[in-house]
Amino acid sequence: MDIERNVPLQTYNTFGIAARALQLVRLRSEDDLHQLLAHAGHAAQPKFVLGGGSNVVITGDIRPMTLKVEIPGKRLVAETDRHWIVEAGAGEVWHDLVAWTLAQGWPGLENLALVPGTVGAAPVQNIGAYGVELQDRFHELDAIDLRNGQTFTLNAAQCGFGYRDSVFKHPPGDARDHGLAGCAVIVRVRFALPKQWQPELDYLDLQRKQAETGVARPTAQQVFDWVCAIRRAKLPDPAVIGNAGSFFKNPTCTEAQVRDIIAREPKLVHYPMPDGSIKLAAGWLIDACGWKGKAVGKAAVYDKQALVLVNKGGATGGEVMTLAKSIQTSVYERFGIRLEPEPVVV
């Protein structure tokens, strides 16, 4: 285990923001982390966990010790009558895992194709796309407590999954609050992939693909291909244009709030939710405020999808956040809706 100094992070965050980690440790195995925590001086230092860097906005050099999670591995660990239980190391690229499971004949993750990031980051965010969330396929995970070095396992209920949310996004609190932000590193994740698989096609863009192709009963591979095509048409490739994917969460509000907005904005894009709330399309709200294509310095709103902020080349984290806050203010002043960013700001 080596500690690297002053490591450039531009290639380690999908926004492509230039910054440095003053100290960086690459975790390629669980033992690497145990060794680090066994050293009293290292164990006491503040730490920042970095996976694929796809859900982070870096606003300056990172002073806490950066733990770069690179733990590999993909395998089938068990079978039940209903599921294949597949395990992956936290450092595996998420999209590669999705493609690999399909190649093995284990469907279920295809709607989450091309979601950027690593396997270990997926439960933190409870990633979701095209009608499927990680929690729908989650079995359990193993993590290491940074406070005492102990390995522990969490099931779905213990992860406290919500919309782009989990216990890993909340700080520790009193006895009722089991937040683990900054306190744990996920090392392995296991998924329960259904043997009685049915395609998830509730999302409008997938229904359009189905109509275009005339395929009544698509295979998991066909759904995967459709999702990849949809994402590539709508969203910029981080390897070409720096970005962190969808920058804001789709907000939810009450039926009364929606009626009030529709009275002024009849074209409001909204979706009823099972709990009676109504989800609004954040991209539509931003576009309606005229932000598509506009920039602050080298940070801009993507001209094909207003929900995505991009780095036009040389953008700083400060410029990204100035743009984001300007958008939030604009949407609130027009609609009375507060947009919440998805990425972590460091």
Rank of each mutant, 00 (worst) to 15 (best):
A121L: 08
K325L: 10
V167K: 09
W94T: 08
C159P: 11
A40Y: 01
W197T: 04
A19K: 01
P64L: 10
N243E: 03
E340T: 15
I262R: 15
H83Y: 15
P64H: 09
S166E: 03
V215C: 06
A282E: 03
P199D: 07
L180R: 15
T254R: 10
K68P: 00
I144M: 14
I278V: 15
P46F: 04
I261H: 01
Q45C: 10
R20W: 01
S277T: 15
G128H: 04
E92F: 00
C253F: 03
G290E: 05
K304V: 07
G290P: 11
T80D: 00
G179S: 05
Y130V: 00
L323T: 13
G89F: 05
P116C: 03
G53N: 09
F161S: 06
A239Q: 14
R147E: 03
N243M: 06
A233K: 15
P46S: 08
V269I: 15
R75G: 04
K47Q: 12
D136R: 12
S326F: 01
V187C: 12
R264A: 03
H83G: 03
I58K: 07
A229K: 11
E4G: 01
E4T: 06
N148E: 04
L134F: 04
E340V: 15
A143Q: 09
P218L: 14
P199F: 12
G149I: 12
V296G: 02
A40R: 15
L134I: 11
D202W: 05
D165Y: 03
A21V: 10
N126A: 05
E79C: 11
N250G: 06
H178A: 11
S277G: 00
G162E: 07
T213V: 08
C289M: 10
G313M: 14
